[in-house]
């Protein structure tokens, strides 16, 4: 039996081993992804991002419990932490907050090091998601590296992006400016037991209004009421205003409501056609990335090392511009 068959049969050790193959991008991993791909496309992909220490892992723990309790869904979790740029090693600590999930065979947690990627995920995170999707997990939650900036990668990968903030993180408001509001489908103010929740929530609200004007606003203009339609960033998806949910990840307060908000977003995507659009956009990016990588490999193989070195030398000596050199090399490579 192949690894991919074992996975379709629900074998956990086979799943764990294939995840390693796929993470390391081995030929065996690639072959399995080809076999598994027809079985993907069913899972709801939920991204969880936000400032370091905001409580992402603790909240993922509670969310998974809630999924099990209220819907009996099978939940896979991928938790990404940064690799050290100096040694390539990593300490992956998100599991510490997920100990409540122990013993449930319908939950599977996998830690992942970013391995030099900068967008909050690892290069192969999307492929791990595919494996879980094919293995029949209804929900795949991806916790990104906590960076507090717009984690662009997660928006491309997830159907629903949850942004977690918390009071008392100091420069959280600064971090929030960095475009994170635009990527949120659902906003969470975690640590609602702490002083300062109101302020954090207020700050989120006002920034939300700035970055995403509501479609319809009524203004008083010279005494007459005017309806203004503000521009929409994701106009094709229709109108979705990210709800703001308070939570306490310690005891699960607000988590059922958070799950409802996530589900509402999934329903909204399905009804508006946004689900297919996001799938299509994601696969489009994936296809282009693969083509680019493959073309580059082939080009390099076709080109002699000397020709490349020569062109580089010409550029360094200002005999040719980089653009000219690239054109020359491309012509040579195509021959």
């Amino acid at each position: 039996m192949t690894l991919s068959q074992a996975i379709l049969n629900g074998e956990r050790l086979a799943l764990a081993r294939l995840l390693t193959q796929v993470e390391n991008d081995t030929p065996q991993g690639r072959a399995a992804l080809i076999e598994l791909f027809p079985h993907t496309g069913k899972a709801h992909l939920v991204g969880v991002t936000g400032s370091p220490g905001a409580g992402k892992s603790s909240l993922v723990n509670q969310l998974a419990l809630q999924y099990r309790k209220s819907q009996e869904k099978r939940v896979a979790i991928i938790a990404v932490d940064p690799s050290s740029p100096f040694t390539g090693g990593a300490v992956l600590g998100d599991r510490v907050r997920m100990r409540d999930l122990f013993g449930d065979p319908n939950i599977f947690i996998r830690s992942m090091a970013s391995r030099g990627s900068l967008g909050g995920l690892a290069q192969t995170t999307a492929n791990l998601v595919q494996v879980f999707d094919a293995a029949g997990f209804d929900v795949v939650i991806v916790e990104t590296v906590g960076a507090g900036q717009s984690e662009v990668d997660i928006v491309r990968l997830a159907h629903t992006t949850v942004v977690v903030e918390a009071p008392g993180l100091g420069d959280d408001i600064q971090a929030l400016k960095a475009g994170i509001m635009e990527i949120a489908d659902v906003l969470v103010v975690n640590k609602a037991d702490r002083p300062g929740v109101e302020n954090t929530e207020k700050a989120l609200k006002s920034m939300l209004e700035l970055s995403r004007p509501t479609t319809k606003r009524t203004l008083k203009h010279h005494g007459t009421e005017m309806t203004v339609f503000a521009p929409q960033e994701k106009a094709e998806d229709g109108v979705w205003t990210p709800p703001i949910q308070r939570t306490i990840a310690f005891d699960g307060t607000g988590v059922p409501e958070l799950l409802e908000a996530i589900e509402r977003h999934a329903d909204y995507l399905r009804q508006s056609g946004g689900w297919q659009r996001r799938e299509r956009a994601r696969l489009d990016v994936e296809l282009q990335t693969l083509i680019r990588a493959e073309l580059l490999t082939r080009f390099r193989e076709a080109l002699s090392a000397q020709a490349y070195e020569k062109a580089l030398e010409d550029v360094v000596e200002r005999k040719m511009s980089p653009w000219q050199a690239a054109q020359t090399l491309l012509k040579e490579g195509a021959r």
Partner: peptide
């Protein structure tokens, strides 16, 4: 172990 280039899953 991290500084030796390994990926360490820490469980607490």
């Amino acid at each position: 172990l991290r500084d030796a280039g390994m990926e360490v899953i820490y469980t607490g």
